[in-house]
Amino acid sequence: MEEPLLFLKLNEYTADRLHFRYIVSTFLAIPDPDIRVKKLLDHIKNYFNHQEKYSFVVPYTRQQLAALIGLRVETVIRSIKKMQKINLLKIDGNKIYY
């Protein structure tokens, strides 16, 4: 009651996180891991308002990406390498540019 703006920010943050979890949970129904990874990267890139190719540095580790979409790290790594071969993303050291 004393801090209405703080309460509003907390509710906004909670709603944003719940919406993100809802969107990511819809990816779990997709059986192909390559499509799961691509859809997750598309969603994250759109969330941060990046449009150009290779303009977005993915802020998550491969382990975190795997945990978000319910895959093993090895599967995510394989999918990312496939995406690099068909020029959907670039890998520079440990950074993924999408």
Results as ranks from 00 to 15, higher is better:
84 Q>M: 13
86 I>T: 13
71 L>K: 05
58 V>S: 10
39 K>Q: 08
78 R>S: 14
41 L>W: 01
70 G>P: 01
43 H>Q: 05
66 A>T: 02
35 I>K: 09
37 V>M: 03
82 K>V: 07
79 S>A: 11
74 E>S: 14
59 P>R: 04
63 Q>L: 11
71 L>M: 06
37 V>D: 02
44 I>T: 09
60 Y>F: 14
71 L>Q: 07
81 K>G: 00
34 D>V: 07
44 I>L: 15
70 G>D: 04
35 I>A: 03
56 F>N: 02
80 I>G: 10
61 T>I: 12
51 Q>V: 14
38 K>F: 07
46 N>L: 14
74 E>V: 11
53 K>H: 10
43 H>N: 05
79 S>F: 05
35 I>L: 09
71 L>H: 01
63 Q>T: 12
40 L>H: 02
69 I>W: 10
52 E>R: 13
38 K>C: 02
79 S>K: 06
38 K>S: 05
86 I>W: 13
54 Y>Q: 10
57 V>K: 15
62 R>V: 08
76 V>S: 00
46 N>A: 15
60 Y>R: 11
58 V>C: 10
69 I>T: 03
64 Q>K: 14
83 M>L: 15
85 K>N: 11
53 K>N: 07
57 V>L: 13
58 V>G: 08
86 I>S: 12
61 T>C: 11
87 N>H: 11
84 Q>W: 09
73 V>I: 11
54 Y>N: 15
66 A>Q: 07
41 L>I: 12
88 L>A: 03
66 A>M: 05
67 A>H: 13
41 L>V: 07
39 K>G: 04
41 L>Q: 07
44 I>D: 05
43 H>A: 04
56 F>Y: 11
44 I>K: 10
79 S>Y: 02
71 L>N: 02
52 E>M: 09
57 V>N: 15
56 F>K: 05
37 V>W: 00
62 R>F: 06
73 V>W: 13
64 Q>H: 04
54 Y>R: 12
81 K>N: 13
39 K>C: 04
58 V>L: 10
88 L>T: 01
56 F>C: 05
89 L>A: 00
41 L>K: 05
89 L>W: 04
42 D>G: 01
52 E>P: 02
76 V>M: 06
88 L>G: 03
39 K>V: 00
50 H>D: 05
37 V>N: 01
61 T>D: 08
81 K>S: 09
49 N>A: 10
70 G>K: 06
80 I>Y: 13
34 D>N: 05
52 E>G: 07
40 L>K: 02
81 K>Q: 14
85 K>F: 06
60 Y>V: 03
43 H>R: 07
64 Q>D: 07
77 I>K: 13
58 V>W: 09
88 L>N: 05
48 F>E: 07
37 V>S: 02
89 L>Q: 04
37 V>L: 03
81 K>I: 12
41 L>T: 03
82 K>M: 11
54 Y>F: 15
41 L>N: 00
58 V>Y: 09
36 R>C: 04
46 N>P: 09
80 I>F: 12
40 L>D: 00
72 R>E: 15
47 Y>A: 06
53 K>T: 06
34 D>Q: 06
62 R>T: 08
88 L>Q: 11
77 I>F: 09
